[in-house]
Design a protein around this nucleic acid. Structure first.
Length: 953
DNA sequence: AGAGTTGAGGTTTTT
DNA sequence: CCTCAACTCT
């Protein structure tokens, strides 16, 4: 369990004990002070801004048994400062006193992925402060108490806040945590606790000197070895400040930091542990002058970049990338190409040169396209610079250029770190490698670990190529080691993925692992079924079969290549009664759309959101009543909300409808478009309705998912940066943009608290990387799914962009994608500890054949093949049920109506938001009746590269 | 036998 | 938006 949760639970215990001793939690300052006294701590007050506070608001001085806090704020705020410092005392921060500066009583339990927070993930010290804020909040108002007050005693958030003298935001946040997040179980028995290192690991961890790359397959204990190496370095009395540990993901960085901290807290704080991007950001801030940037540049994310480029796009005179009905998508595609170029440290100028080289070589249109990307690249860099921003790519590529060109800075940094350790080396791209090379040119004391066969991030320039050239082109003279013992899986599974690995293109042949565990008695199983619908039932059957054998739902994972697939599968499993943990796209969810519709009433003159709001049990209205309101609004020029104060003027409104509107009016009272969306929603959920309370007492696993989705939404809404315009409008526009670009993906990350729910985990294979499960199910093992046929990038990289690649860059992409598919399958199989199930339908829904994946045959003879007949039919989805309707007279549709229907019906779900009617729809005359003309013209096949791939193989 | 048509299936990922 | 299976047409 993670440290934040432990601290929170400790605080809740202290609260209970204090109450038992007779202290009054409704007098927070006295309550906190009593706890300080109990532990023998003096609480003293210092003037705000006093020197002893050193710019902070409170401090815990262990050697003097003293808590010092500023003389400012309400009694509750003071109590919060004291409780924060008690947290430091309780959790053993007895080193040098560090004043606490940024104290936020209403901090969400987890950060929302917005802005630079996505990159920095806080240093350990800052995480500690976050932890203390949560500690303090829990001590003053534990979740269990907040929950009881609201759910059982019926107190609103405002009532609790007033009684406690606390800010509304703090109480509301605590209520959200209490009501919407699942209760986290007390520490499960520490699994796979310390196992001693095996000889291979000892050798690898003990290596000193030359560059070293440890090839470590799945389940071989690579993280353990890396941690052991760090401990070894500390034992050798290496100054932890001179150790740099780089990972690719925030998650990996956090885990590593926690792991080190468990053994050596001070060293973990002193060491630099973080992602390449976070490290890069650190360098950018340190050397901002040399880079011509402000001290603390902002991060320009994709959404903002698209926005700004849209303004200048028409003026660029592009020919090939001009003016598709909607420039958004093409701009996003070009930004992807630009980001890819930054992965290779290719700037706009160099990009233009590469395009020119192509033109000279006679590449024709491809060269012109590359030149246009170069033009946009150049423009983008300028506007980004003018906005004092950097983007994700800059975070690594700017420091690389800085270090490669500034000898003095390079020497300075080389001298700063003695040891550089890199996790997940197969995920690094050229810019990361060049950063490493600048820091450790001779590779001395550079130590990396990775597995080329798990290289599934090629789209961003990671490739097994970087693993291959370690020790030769990169860091010549470097050495290699290998871990060959798998501790995770039973031999049956290890043998299967090792057999597959033997013929993989990535990472060379071999790479077979030796299973350390005893036989499990069950080979990996392939279960073939006839139809796709049967596949889901067969999957559900297997899940229940495993559960009957004692495997909890939460110990089983279903892995797919894509999110869309996962989401349909999730709904189908739910219909079959299997609890699943999968939120899907946050903004597609009903409970989230309900709240956004509610917000939209504040800003939409026509109140279109009412259609949805009227379906909620809070404000129930008939369709007729909704129609009456909408007609009324169409006829009258009103401002948003004004109509809610004149409900009697709406013609043909039923009494029930009027009552619902009056309730809605009360729920929205005092708010307008200028209100803070978070406050509006918090007030709705916690003060003016019992929505949150009702959801939180439901025992239904589906409702648990709804709660988590709401929590996620509230966290997102709260984290919205301030800016110009009305906050509600800004939020809704922001959501629209996010969904259009598919950037809401970031919000799918489940909060850590969700991990305790007993439900089957549904994940993409990418999402499952680095995790393991007792039972893994892999549906959809068909020839058209797992080696899939990935699309060519919309803006192909110019030839020569990818370093070390030969041939056309399209070739490079294609080869990389084929390799990546194998890696995906390898990762998927190797997540399983005890049982592995693979499924495929052998037919399409219309009864034609659907061949199985060729990968199955490569798993060797250990794979048990079965044809299964599922136990029951798949229940029909309510939304698929036919709706009976009748009409009178001649049926006719206008062209635009048909076009709209066709576009919505035929577009895959993830495109439904992103494009308007296709150009061919627009061309139709407005009143077409002849439907035959609506057939979409087929495109003439061209004989381009991606069409007949076979001829190139 | 090969060209063309139709319907169904698939289209990820992080900082 | 591309690919495959299975069909029809010549």
């Amino acid at each position: 369990m993670d440290a934040v949760e432990l601290a929170r639970q400790a605080a809740a215990r202290l609260h209970t004990q204090a109450v038992e001793k007779g202290h009054d939690p409704w007098r927070p300052y006295a309550f906190a002070k009593a706890e300080a006294e109990r532990r023998g701590l003096d609480v003293e007050v210092a003037a705000k801004g006093a020197a002893v506070l050193d710019g902070g608001r409170a401090v815990f001085v262990a050697r003097d048994d003293l808590i010092l806090h500023e003389d400012a704020g309400t009694p509750f705020e003071r109590a919060f400062l004291v409780a924060h410092e008690i947290g430091h005392a309780e959790l053993g921060d007895d080193g040098d006193p560090t004043p606490s500066r940024e104290i936020d009583p209403a901090r969400p339990a987890e950060a929302s992925p917005v802005g630079l927070d996505r990159v920095v993930d806080y240093g350990r010290k800052q995480r500690r402060e976050v932890q203390m804020d949560l500690f303090a909040r829990e001590f003053l108002l534990p979740r269990s108490v907040a929950r009881r007050l609201h759910v059982e005693e019926g107190l609103s958030a405002t009532a609790i806040a007033e009684r406690l003298g606390a800010p509304f935001a703090m109480v509301a946040q605590q209520l959200f945590d209490a009501l919407l997040l699942p209760v986290i179980e007390l520490p499960a028995a520490e699994e796979n606790a310390a196992r001693d290192l095996n000889p291979e690991q000892i050798v690898a961890a003990a290596h000193r000197g030359r560059a070293y790359l440890l090839e470590a397959g799945p389940g071989t204990g690579k993280t353990q070895t890396l941690a052991a190496r760090i401990e070894g370095l500390l034992a050798d009395v290496v100054n932890p400040r001179r150790i740099l540990v780089l990972t690719f993901s925030n998650k990996a960085a956090r885990e590593m930091a926690e792991r080190i901290a468990a053994k050596n807290k001070d060293a973990a704080v002193a060491m630099w542990i973080g992602t390449f991007h976070a490290f890069g950001l650190d360098l950018i801030r340190r050397f901002h002058q040399e880079l011509g940037l402000p001290k603390d540049p902002r991060l320009m994310d994709r959404t903002e970049a698209v926005d700004r480029l849209e303004d200048v796009f028409p003026g660029l005179g592009l020919v090939h990338y001009q003016n598709l009905s909607d420039p958004t998508q093409i701009i996003a595609d070009m930004l992807a190409a630009i980001s890819r170029a930054k992965d290779e440290v290719v700037d706009a100028k160099r990009y233009a040169e590469l395009a020119e080289d192509m033109r000279v070589a006679g590449a024709g249109e491809a060269a012109e396209r590359a030149a246009e990307v170069a033009l946009v690249y150049d423009r983008y860099e300028k506007l980004k610079h003018e906005a004092h921003c950097v983007d994700f790519g800059d975070l690594v590529s700017l420091p690389v250029r800085l270090l490669e060109t500034h000898e003095a800075i390079r020497a300075h940094l080389q001298a700063e770190y003695d040891h550089v350790l890199v996790d997940e080396y197969q995920d690094v791209n050229r810019s990361s490698v060049r950063l490493l090379a600048a820091l450790r040119p001779d590779g001395q004391n550079l130590w990396a670990v990775g597995d080329a066969k798990q290289s599934i991030y090629r789209f961003r320039g990671a490739s097994s190529f970087n693993m291959a050239r370690f020790g030769t082109d990169d860091f010549p003279g470097g050495e290699r080691g290998r871990l060959t013992r798998n501790y995770r899986s039973v031999p049956e599974i290890v043998d299967a993925f090792s057999a597959f690995a033997a013929k993989m293109k990535a990472g060379g042949g071999g790479g077979g692992l030796v299973a350390e565990r005893g036989r499990g008695g069950h080979p990996p199983e392939h279960r073939a079924v006839a139809t796709p619908a049967q596949q889901t039932v067969a999957l559900a059957d297997a899940i229940e079969e495993m559960r009957a054998g004692g495997v909890r739902y939460r110990d089983q994972a279903v892995l797919c290549t894509g999110n869309e697939k996962l989401s349909t599968l999730g709904h189908e499993l739910e219909r079959l009664g299997i609890p699943v943990l999968f939120l899907g796209s946050l903004f597609e969810r009903d409970e989230v759309k309900d709240l956004l519709a509610f917000l939209s009433i504040l800003v939409d003159r026509r109140a279109m959101g009412l259609t949805r709001v009227a379906c909620s049990p809070e404000f129930p209205m008939s369709l007729g009543d909704v129609g009456a309101v909408l007609d009324h609004l169409r006829g009258n020029e009103t401002t948003p909300l004004a109509w809610l104060n004149a409900i009697d003027r709406i013609a043909e409104l039923s009494a029930d409808g009027a009552a619902a509107l009056r309730r809605l009016s009360t729920a929205l009272a005092g708010f307008d478009a200028g209100a803070s969306p978070w406050t509006v929603l918090a007030t709705l959920l916690l003060d003016r309705t019992r929505i949150a309370a009702r959801l939180s007492v439901s025992a239904d696993v589906i409702d648990r998912g709804r709660c988590i989705a709401l929590w996620q939404l509230l966290n997102f809404v709260r984290a919205q940066p301030s800016g110009r315009g009305q906050p509600v409008v800004r939020l809704l526009d922001g959501v629209r943009r996010l969904v259009r670009l598919g950037d809401e993906r970031d919000l799918r990350q489940l909060p850590a608290a969700a991990q305790g729910i007993d439900a089957v985990r549904l994940m993409t294979i990418h999402g499952a990387k680095g995790l393991e499960f007792p039972v893994v199910h892999l549906p959809g093992m068909n020839a058209d799914t797992l080696p899939g046929n990935p699309r060519a990038p919309a803006c192909p990289p110019p030839n020569g962009l990818v370093e070390g690649a030969t041939g056309s860059s399209l070739d490079v992409v294609r080869v990389g994608q084929a390799e990546e598919q194998e890696c995906l399958f390898y990762v998927a199989q190797s997540r399983a500890r005890d049982r592995l199930f693979l499924y495929c339908p052998t037919q399409k829904s219309n009864g034609t054949n659907r061949p199985e994946s060729p990968f199955l045959a490569r798993m060797g003879s250990g794979l048990a093949r079965k044809s299964v007949t599922p136990s029951r039919p798949l229940p029909e989805a309510p939304e698929d049920r036919a709706i009976a309707w009748t009409y009178e007279g001649k049926l006719s549709f206008t062209g635009p109506q048909m076009a709209l229907y066709e576009c919505v019906r035929s577009a895959p779900p993830y495109r439904r938001h992103s494009r308007g009617p296709a150009p061919w729809c627009r061309a139709l005359a407005p009143h077409t009746q002849d439907c035959s003309s609506l057939r979409r013209p087929r495109r003439q096949p061209e004989h381009g590269y991606w069409r007949n791939r076979r001829s190139h193989q």
